[in-house]
């Protein structure tokens, strides 16, 4: 009699413990999520660099729809604009809203660049959105965003 009972208790205890681990795991995942950038922090990071309210358009982000390896995702960001002394793209800021930190890179251009288009490889820790804001020499801002699905994250380790 005592034997099966203790077995049951053992099982319950084991279940309870498993539940406890499960909760701990969820909690740590939530904590990890908290540490990551959010769309808000990405917006704040961009707003600190380019003051004003950006409009859609002119900026284009090229990136794979699904990135198997988040360690090096090829990204091309271009701005449709002439590059003359009178009118040119002054700056281009790129952010990612799901990485530990929202910033990716911040470029500044002179008319001598000829074309405001850059290519780089970025780390993406999870599926998230890339946001790019371009600042023209007259202060006008343009924004674009693009979601990249990440199979294997590329941050920390």
């Amino acid at each position: 009699m005592t034997h099966p009972r203790s077995l049951t208790l053992g099982r319950r205890a084991a279940l309870a413990r498993a539940g406890g681990y499960g909760l701990a795991a969820i909690a740590s995942v939530l904590a990890a999520r908290d540490a990551a950038a959010t769309p808000d922090s990405a917006r704040d990071w961009l707003a600190a660099l380019a003051k004003g309210s950006p409009k859609d358009g002119k900026v284009s982000i090229k990136a794979p729809e699904i990135a198997e390896n988040g360690n090096a995702v090829p990204v091309t960001v271009g701005v449709e604009s002439e590059m003359t002394e009178k009118s040119y793209v002054k700056a281009l800021h790129i952010a990612a809203d799901g990485n530990p930190n929202p910033g990716v890179a911040s470029y500044s251009f002179m008319p001598l660049a000829g074309r405001a288009e850059v290519q780089l490889r970025v780390r993406l820790s999870q599926t998230q959105k890339l946001v790019a804001v371009a600042e023209m020499n007259d202060g006008a801002l343009f924004v674009a965003s693009r979601e990249v699905k990440v199979t294997i994250g590329g941050c920390g380790g």
Binding site: N71, A72, V73, M83, A96, N99, P100, N101, G103, V104, A105, S106, Y107, S108, F109, M110, P111, L112, A113, G114, R115, A116, E117, V118, Q119, L120, R121, V122, R123, L124, G154, C155
Partner: peptide, 27 residues
Amino acid sequence: TYNGKPVMSAKLEPAVSTNPYLSFFVR
């Protein structure tokens, strides 16, 4: 820079991959 004249510059964050590849244009 091209002939000492600034073309472009970039500030990079840790989100840029190992062995950073960068491309840009110059007139």
